[in-house]
Design a binder for these strands. Structure first.
Lengths: 338, 338
DNA sequence: CCTGGCACTCCGCCGTTTCGAGTGCCAGCT
DNA sequence: AGCTGGCACTCGAAACGGCGGAGTGCCAGG
């Protein structure tokens, strides 16, 4: 176990390095922080911290920089979540209140997060599997052509075209619509399949193929869209840091363009607790020097999706975590209202 | 007017510079192209081309690079549109055919364009104002709460919530839905407003506020969504070139995040002709060393939106133009089918 | 266990030199 | 008149070398 002062030294190193982006030495540390000890003592502490793997030096006779493990300790033991200023809170509210629909909410959230944290923002659309059905609509676009529209309680709308072999009567359609809605409205998407399985049997044999087709498309939509949608923004912020490492920006950009990678970054866990993944903890080459701060958001207690930011491991964790959490809460409120 | 050979020299310079990304000198030119003259002669031609403003040298005693004006001449007079290989055509078709809905079509198109051209791809969603109404749906989510769903002939779906002061009966809603659809289905969005203006008058006075509310929201949607949506991808390709100018990538990324800038880049013109904007022709600082190749696409003859790519002025214009045009055609086909 | 002192290391900076691709110009040839 | 070979010149890129200084590890003394 590290002594109190050594933890304090680590904290100081992290803070200074985040601020200056340059390796920090023992002398500078004692000058900028009231540690109450001399540089030599700090050097000894640093040697220990390095032995333990919390800090490292890029090369001999240079200052120290925190390792992933060092950041991890900092985040777990020392970093609180810095609350936003009231001005920032008001800005968030004003910015999000103007949204007209779900796309707009997500788009605004991304821009907001990117601006607040000056990093790359990632927002997952409310998940279908974790949402509930608000309404199912069936529209006859042509005699044998139906459009299926799914509306979730989070405001998300999915639509699919269905081609039927034979024309479907309007009354049948209305019947199906009514029965479908009475069974699934208010239910979790994940719970829908067993609820509609026996529906075709209650219809006239002539109509069963069409009914089955509609149901098949419905179920297919639920499954397919497990592959979630994601929006990201603020890529320009990547150039803010890394000014001297244009080499490092490339793999990050590439990783960010892969939906699958992004989803993994946000994490699959359903709980809405805030997660911080630091450097190699992301298990993705190219993101080895980036950290991810993510949190679930939702209209109620449970998270329907996640949002977060991706930035350099040398980020302002308390501030970032504060911004991410605050934005997630406001987005949750907005969704609950709509 | 430039002589035939000087044009040939310019073409050679453009081609070599695009290939090597380095200023090209007179000697290298004569070696790589069968111009039939000596380096000295080429030097004289180069001097003339430089006087005319088609090429420039980064500094004395360096090779020449094309100017914006030089690229412009190249594109206008010398560059054809390189057709894609049949393998590429098949790849496009396979890739786009798997799309399930409009979002998916756009997302796949962006990725496809980015991969084909190895540049940043930009795709505008089918414009509402230039689309037609396929269907208007009104859903009673709660007694005094209506959801308006607009479906366009390009598959785009817009939805809005409407809060009414008083409950609206299902029969009234059905009535309004029917009349609304009979008036506007098949019409251009832009033509809708005058067609629905007198609708409230034909309803019972008690219901008029609700009807008016619905219409207001409908019209508002049409206007608001003139602000088009856009999707872009392939930002990682920015790092492919510019390897030595990490400085130049920043303003480009920033510009690409501004919806308004992107829309201007694609161009407001309604015609579907291909446009090429080179360097300063974009009238946007930060995009002074990028070119935009854009073209309209649509299900029929007329364009409902635009798509294109943004890349360095030193791009392979014939190849890029070929890819952009081909993708636009296939997307048009897909939209027509759905 | 902390501290001041000291020798050592090594990166980053800067001025100098060298190298070579490329140019402009000119005289001569066709 | 237009093309060509030759030649002197320019100027950036890369290689070299010599500091300077921040930072370290270690040690002896409080």
């Amino acid at each position: 176990m590290l002594s109190e002062r050594r933890l304090e030294v680590l904290r100081a190193i992290v803070q200074d390095y985040v601020g200056t982006e340059e390796p920090v030495g023992s002398k500078a540390l004692t000058e900028r922080h009231r540690l109450g000890v001399s540089p030599a003592t700090v050097r000894n502490d640093m040697a220990v911290l390095e032995d333990e793997g919390y800090i490292a030096q890029p090369h001999t006779s240079a200052g120290r920089i925190p390792t992933d493990k060092g950041y991890r300790l900092f985040v777990d033991k020392m970093a609180g979540v810095k609350p936003l200023s009231s001005a920032e809170r008001r800005a968030i509210q004003n910015f999000l209140d103007g949204a007209v629909d779900l796309d707009d909410v997500v788009a605004r959230t991304v821009r907001l997060l990117a601006q607040l944290t000056r990093q790359v923002a990632v927002v997952q659309y409310p998940s279908l599997t974790r949402s509930s059905v608000r309404h199912v609509e069936l529209l006859a676009l042509a005699p044998a052509r139906i459009m299926l529209v799914l509306i979730t309680d989070t405001g998300r709308v999915e639509q699919r075209l269905i081609d039927c072999q034979a024309p479907v009567g309007e009354t049948v359609l209305a019947d199906l619509r009514a029965r479908l809605n009475s069974r699934v409205v208010g239910r979790r998407f994940a719970d829908v399949p067993p609820l509609v399985q026996d529906l075709p049997e209650s219809f006239d044999p002539d109509d069963r193929p069409a009914v089955a087709g509609v149901l098949a498309t419905l179920l297919e939509t639920l499954v397919e869209q497990t592959e979630e949608r994601i929006m990201l923004g603020g890529a320009a912020n990547l150039t803010r840091f890394n000014h001297d490492f244009p080499l490092t920006i490339r793999p990050v950009l590439e990783a960010l363009e892969e939906q699958m990678v992004l989803l993994k970054l946000l994490g699959e866990a359903t709980d809405s607790a805030m997660t911080v993944r630091i450097g190699h903890e992301n298990f993705h080459e190219g993101l080895n020097s980036t950290s991810v701060v993510a949190v679930g958001y939702g209209s109620g207690d449970e998270a329907v999706a996640k949002l977060g930011v991706v930035g350099p491991t040398r980020m302002d964790y308390p501030g970032t975590m504060g911004a991410v959490r605050a934005v997630a809460r406001y987005v949750g409120q907005i969704l609950a209202e709509s």
